[in-house]
Design a protein around this nucleic acid. Structure first.
Lengths: 240, 240
DNA sequence: TAGTGGTCTAGACCACTTT
DNA sequence: AAGTGGTCTAGACCACTAG
């Protein structure tokens, strides 16, 4: 069957189907690449690619000599997408607006210095801004930028372009770390977000770096009622 | 120069380095596979694999005839790991304990029916339980299971094994959807979690299904102060 | 030490899309 | 029409590890 679908994909789907239907159970061993190649009448490399992608997506584990075994589906947890704020607002059918609150050079606090790999008291750029969806605050943002790691940032006013947008397009990075938690709004936060003190907020802390050099650390606060992170069925293991 | 590192990885790293350092800028075109193969003195397939993985990880876009171009790094958002509760508690250095609150067969509410693809009023299994870390509630869980989609679930007492654990190892699934938001604890929730009314909670809603058939839907509530979702630098595009 | 996965090559044909 | 990526093959050698 299949038709124009690549062979490796046919093989991969067939094996995945065996796992999902229980024909292959957790701990069972898959046929060797050689055997798969014979069964599907393809080269070993084609069989290899099919199984390699299943391994990359967490379905199976491969070990030389020991062969390929079906993994318990629990491992590794689940992957969630964090959308860009502009897209998120647009998806909700609201019109997006960015607002700068203030921008200044300050001495790094202990936490900021730790996030960015600087010494406490080193000079960093502090930006506070808001992201609106129609007439409500969608996200309140407090950001610190390591000027040494972001050449040209000193010339930015961030009046019209959000720091996130500018950084993404001008400063290369390699690693991002997120921490997501729920907090109660402090008085200052409540004012910025137009909410009551103690209101539940979804807080995202993000640190961005390039090969060990901290670029920026940011705290994002979203009103709990309206803001939701989602993960679609998008597995998206490998071959886009 | 490398040594035991595979050639395709050397090539991949070299290209990735050019992107991250700005030698190749957004919109620039990568050399053709043929040219890469010549430059690194390898076969075209090896060059292909290197570039294919860069594409799978979102660094570049590939189009026939048009070639391979560097993408703006913003696209697609970020991926976050949701750990298993047992692992999360263990990682915090606490001892994990599971506690069943109750288990009964009920008529599906509108929301549960919608999540599971059933008709309102259809019979579903309702489970409520708690996950402890030492002497504090780490997570309070309300779950509904479609018995038709989980053969054998009727025989389970869930007294010692959590429904999550049993389902993961006994019922195959293909798709999972998550919604994460922050909520204020209701009176009932506050009691279950041992918190004050209005305390911020991180709420995770999860729907698990197999090829369109709803298996289970669950609402997980975590105390806001102690619970944090994290994403490491784990990019994990393809080749594990 | 034998079996399995990991990688690599040289060459080939095809599919798509720009010129 | 031509250039680029997408896939495939047959065969090869190496790396790791269970028996």
């Amino acid at each position: 069957m299949s038709g124009q679908r690549p062979i490796y994909r046919t093989v991969k789907n067939a094996l995945q189907h065996r796992i999902e239907t229980g024909a292959l159970r957790v701990g069972d061993q898959l046929p060797s690449e050689e055997a798969i190649a014979q069964e599907f009448d393809c080269s070993r490399l084609t069989a290899h690619r099919a199984v390699r992608e299943l391994a990359a997506e967490g379905f199976v584990e491969r070990r030389r000599r020991a062969g390929t075994t079906v993994l318990p589906r629990e491992r590794g947890g689940v992957l969630i997408r964090i959308p860009l704020i502009r897209d998120e607002v647009a998806a909700a059918g609201k019109s997006y607006r960015y607002e700068l609150i203030d921008l200044k050079s300050v001495a790094a606090s202990a936490r900021v210095a730790s996030d960015l790999g600087l010494a406490q008291g080193d000079e960093v750029l502090a930006v506070r801004c808001r992201h609106w969806g129609d007439r409500t605050v969608w996200q309140y943002e407090e950001r610190w930028i390591n000027p040494a790691a972001a050449p040209g940032v000193q010339d930015q006013s961030f009046l019209r372009t959000s720091p996130n947008r500018w950084l993404l397009t001008h400063v290369p990075y390699s690693d991002v770390t997120h921490e997501i938690t729920a907090v109660a709004a402090t008085k200052a936060q409540a004012v910025r977000l137009g909410l009551a003190i103690g209101a539940p907020l979804l807080q995202t802390r993000r640190v961005t770096s390039l090969h060990g050099t901290g670029i920026t650390t940011v705290t994002l606060l979203h009103p709990g009622g309206t803001y939701t992170l989602r993960s679609g069925p998008a597995q998206d293991g490998t071959s886009a």
